[in-house]
Amino acid sequence: MASPEIHFLGHSTVRVELAGRTVLTDPLLARTVGLLRRVVPLPDPATWAGVDLVLISHLHGDHLHIPSLRTVGPDTRILVPRGAGDWLRGRGFPHVGELSAGETIRDGDLRITAVRAEHSGHRWGPRSTHGPATESLGYLLEGGGVTVYASGDTGLFDGMAVLAERAVDVALLPVWGWGPTLGPGHLDPVSAAEAVARIRPRFAVPVHWGTLALAGMAHLPSPLRGRMRRLLVDPPHSFATEVAARGLGTRVVVTPPGNRVSLSPAAAA
């Protein structure tokens, strides 16, 4: 495999350089998001420079973050789930394209296919009736003989087994979130390992961990402080253990937020 260049910038934000294009997933480049606080340093600005394409998996504020999109640059091309284009263009982003699951576009030599995700697609969550609502997506990136799957937020779904037919080289899979518990439509270390069993990627990179926490939860004295501190560190390692216990051939590459992902065998967990 001709390795793509991948940097895990934190939460669901990953820079992927593949087939001559630079892609950024769900950019979150701020210290705060509502009541959430970033618990690791912001990535170096060089890591979001020169981006050709931004992929938005769904509309929740920690994935479609308007200030971060402005940081990347309002003229950058953005792909969003179908139905969110007008809403985002109305906020000053003129180059917005829309995809539904199963649809494909090309950007130079890079092929991007939208994939279903099992997750709420409403901007403000499932209990709100205001604001846009769309499907949630993952994305397959294919080019130069390499396939990268960025799942976005998702729970398990039967169609994951179909992805095994696409010979995924690298799967970017969420393994936790930002709180002491997970709601529906998320993967934890055990279910993420089941996703690996269905998709059968060569490498799995755990994301959506170790970046955000509710304000004060990891620092102020409370019964949850110890648990929250562990959840900022443990999930990717638990995920690696679960994958190994299943005897899968996938190599798990645990990468701290803000770092380049090394896809050499020696770097795998």
Rank of each mutant, 00 (worst) to 15 (best):
E5V: 11
S12Q: 12
V14K: 04
R15F: 03
T22S: 14
V23I: 12
L24R: 04
L28G: 00
A30M: 07
R31V: 08
T32Y: 14
L35D: 14
V40D: 12
V40R: 15
D44P: 13
P45H: 12
A49P: 05
V51T: 14
V51R: 09
D52N: 15
L53T: 08
S68C: 13
L69S: 08
R70P: 09
R77K: 09
I78D: 06
V80K: 10
A84H: 02
G85M: 03
D86S: 14
R91G: 13
P94C: 13
G97N: 02
G97K: 04
E98D: 13
E103K: 07
R106Y: 04
D107V: 13
R111W: 03
I112V: 15
A114L: 04
H119F: 08
H119N: 11
G125E: 04
R127F: 08
T129S: 06
P132V: 01
A133C: 00
G145R: 05
V146Q: 11
G152Q: 10
D153Y: 03
D153P: 03
D158V: 14
V162H: 09
A164D: 13
D169L: 06
G179D: 11
P184E: 06
P184Q: 07
L187V: 04
L187K: 03
V190D: 07
S191Y: 04
S191P: 01
A193P: 07
A197Y: 01
I199N: 03
T211Y: 05
L212Y: 13
G216L: 09
L220T: 12
V233R: 15
F239H: 06
V243Y: 01
V243A: 02
R246V: 07
G247I: 04
L248N: 02
T250A: 09
V252P: 11
V261I: 10
A266L: 08
